[in-house]
């Protein structure tokens, strides 16, 4: 007899099928290129390239998955980890939607809102990239012009300035310590930069949870 799945269970089932399907297709891309152009990988160079890249990315990927899944919800996670650009686009987009609708990320309404926001963001991003690829010849001089270049270079500070105000104003008691810590670390540790901010997100999240737990136990929150 067919078992009636809950919404969340069906999201996990469908998400698993979609993600594993996309993963297989992604791996088929280089295989298809090799077959079409009658070539094979340079195995030695491939091993060297993978050795230099994969361990770091795998470690980061595992930490990012554990950190981001509870924030993105089920549907949002399956989509975000396929479409990418999580911390600079999908997660802020979901956060903004949850905040505007005043729903918790852990509720079913939050799950639905987060999925809708991330799905719309993914569709819009895909369409804009397609348009960009088609119109690359006329667009390239405009987007890479010296006038606009500083604006795109500063997208993340502009995004997190606005998002910071929206979230910190509502959670200022748990925000002070992690912001102070991150400011000190990023100012005085030269190794911390745009390339390492992704690694600092889980660290900062764990620190903030610890601070929040102490404040909660003391009855401050």
């Amino acid at each position: 007899m067919k078992k009636n799945l809950s919404y969340i269970d069906s999201v996990h089932r469908d998400g698993t099928v979609w993600n594993l399907g996309v993963m297989a297709l992604l791996l088929l891309f280089p295989v298809a290129v090799a077959l079409l152009f009658s070539t094979a990988p340079d195995w030695g160079a491939l091993a060297t390239g993978l050795f230099a890249t994969a361990p770091m990315y795998w470690a980061t990927g595992i930490i990012e998955t554990i950190t981001f899944v509870p924030m993105l919800g089920a549907g949002g996670s399956y989509l975000s980890f396929v479409t990418g650009n999580i911390s600079n686009l999908k997660l802020p987009c979901a956060l903004n939607a949850l905040e505007q609708n005043e729903v918790s990320a852990t509720s079913e309404e939050g799950e639905v809102i987060s999925t809708i926001a991330i799905a719309v963001s993914s569709i819009v991003t895909t369409v804009i990239i397609v348009v960009g690829v088609i119109l690359i010849v006329p667009l390239q001089p405009i987007l890479q012009s010296a006038v606009l270049e500083p604006a795109f270079a500063q997208m993340l500070p502009a995004l997190f300035g606005g998002l910071g105000v929206a979230f910190i104003s509502k959670n200022w008691k748990i925000s002070v310590a992690p912001i102070a810590l991150m400011l000190v670390l990023f100012i005085f540790v030269p190794a911390l930069n745009a390339g390492t901010v992704g690694i600092m997100v889980p660290f900062s999240a764990v620190f903030t949870i610890a601070v929040a737990r102490i404040l909660y136990k003391k009855g401050v929150l």
Binding site: F160, I179, M182, P190, V201, A205, T208
Partner: peptide, 25 residues
């Protein structure tokens, strides 16, 4: 659980606010 969820969001935002200051030195 709600506080925990907000703490994770704040943790992410704090890391990016720190990143904004990475060339301050």
């Amino acid at each position: 659980t709600d506080i925990l969820s907000n703490a994770m969001f704040i943790g992410m935002i704090a890391a990016f606010l720190g990143f904004v200051f990475c060339d301050f030195s």
